[in-house]
Amino acid sequence: MRDWHPAVAAAEPSQKAERDPAAPLFGGVYRERFERILGRYPTKRAALLPVLHLAQEVRGWLAPETMTRVAELLDLTPAQVRAVASFYTMFNLKPVGSYLVQVCTNIACDLCGAGKVLERFLSETGTEPGAISADGRYTVVETECLGACGFATAVLINDRFYESVTPENVPALLAELP
């Protein structure tokens, strides 16, 4: 069992393949983490980003009902929550495939051929950018610099970070996803 020390209760990647769009906000260990997160800030509002992450970790995306629920939990209005959630690219305001593939196409990766990596992900998964593949498994998007520019091309798939991805690596990389 992981140590959810209050200091790190929010320190978890929020994009997971396993999710339950109907799960309660929040039950079980998530309830505990929610309480611990709240205890780290002098205002409830300050917990908004971590709590949105937690909601996304549980449900996979932030549906309007999810944001309304988060608003209730933090004494905010749904409009306030929506205004914040829509500002940040990591919060999914529409559903995404089980695996969200984010390919960096910013300057350094672009110089090193990120466009071809992106194309390969799209062709291997048979999707258009931002769409969900027919089997529900993949959503492929372009993303801004991932902070791994010397190891181009950088790719994020849910909670996994890949460096030095080439178009040739793509099929194997997709195949090893559970």
Partner: peptide, 12 residues
């Protein structure tokens, strides 16, 4: 001294 990890959400 307390310390908390706060995870950003994608905004340069």
């Amino acid at each position: 001294i307390e310390c908390t990890i706060h995870v950003g959400a994608g905004a340069y």
